[in-house]
Design a binder for these strands. Sequence first.
DNA 1: GCAAAAGTGTTTTTCTTACACCCATGG
DNA 2: CCATGGGTGTAAGAAAAACACTTTTGC
Lengths: 234, 234
Amino acid sequence: MDFYKSEPKVLLAVDCIIFGFNGESLEILLIKRGFDPERGKWSLMGGFVQPDESPEGAASRVLKKLTGLENVYMEDCGIFGDPNRERNGRVVSLAYFALIDTHQYEHIISDEYEAHWFPLTTYPELIFDHQQMIDKAKRELRTKAALYPILFELLPEKFTIPQIASLYECVYNIELDKRNFSRKLLASDLIIKLKEKDKENSKKGAFFYRLNTEIYREKIMSFLRYLPGWSMDE
Amino acid sequence: MDFYKSEPKVLLAVDCIIFGFNGESLEILLIKRGFDPERGKWSLMGGFVQPDESPEGAASRVLKKLTGLENVYMEDCGIFGDPNRERNGRVVSLAYFALIDTHQYEHIISDEYEAHWFPLTTYPELIFDHQQMIDKAKRELRTKAALYPILFELLPEKFTIPQIASLYECVYNIELDKRNFSRKLLASDLIIKLKEKDKENSKKGAFFYRLNTEIYREKIMSFLRYLPGWSMDE
DNA sequence: GCAAAAGTGTTTTTCTTACACCCATGG
DNA sequence: CCATGGGTGTAAGAAAAACACTTTTGC
């Protein structure tokens, strides 16, 4: 039964790039390590894959431990396994990015970890190759979000069109014509208008919308516009 | 120095989804296992990550061992680590897809492995979760190729426009208007016309082209058309 | 000379972009 | 009553799609 006895084993870790959007800027959640090695330095939240769990499971566990959140959108976004990436022995790390709405992030158990949100434009130096992980996660996020409407995962249930627009502006570091953006989005049938208005950010107030989950599920699987009338599931 | 002594180690494998295009159909390269466990069954080519190599390194090594090819386009496309995915103990496997031109595939060391190309439409049942790996690789290939011109990696140095068109048709399972496709491609400046013609596939003959590697390198990093005038590197 | 694939020209339609202008409202 | 962001209308321009038609050549 033990066919692979002679094969080498490695320590397998997961690290989470946790993206959050507060309405103004795109941010990542970092922790100040309270444990060795590299105690006291800033890093991504991570952990080791346990014998009874899958890597995704480990990533979810780690995320929940830090934020208290479950059922969060996560996606693996890279394998970091250079033999010398950690000085303290061989660790292969699987990077996952998570998209959360920062407003849900109240019930944080941050007593245990010294966690802090940083804007993606300025954050402290990080240990190991965590900087590269963030870069990779950013690229993956941009690529994926160009085809699939995953950025909605960063917004609360009720959101306004100006909010989404500014989210896209943050992610791609561009300026959008909000008027055209709004129309394009409405034409996709992805969002449903609500009666309420958000009066926080303007005098006139912007209508709230919610996701049309049916269309969303459809589009999240087939948003490719490069090829004529083609959908992912064939 | 030994901070992680108490953490569990796992066997870490790589499995390669090797895509090839022969001008007619998109195929994958499978091997008939000549070793236990699951001896005699069809599977992806794989191997274990060694202490002195990165996972990408392991994937390249495995690919080279089977095909003799080096410097092949590869990309990780999924982490398969369900605790019960193998009956013979815990193995986490990292899936990589490779794109190769089947015509380069002559110097195969297939004595050691019983390898065979199968069309993506019909191939034998596979061990473990290799079927899911192929599904994932297909999805990733489609997503990536919708934004970046990676499908050229499947073609020989000299190729014709009808060849690329039929490749896209294979990958996305669609029919293209070859006339419009041709113009669109030429407009991108990605390819350079050669003097020669390929007379194999038609009486008139189709001109050969080669990649404009400069434009290629540029586009492979920024082919997103979803957002106005935006490039990946900011 | 005809069948078959390659490739060009042209029209139609659809999508993007730019921007003028109206709307609602808190101060 | 006006400054401010939210939102609609509209017209110009670009890109995609559809398709008629010409080119080349092996048989």
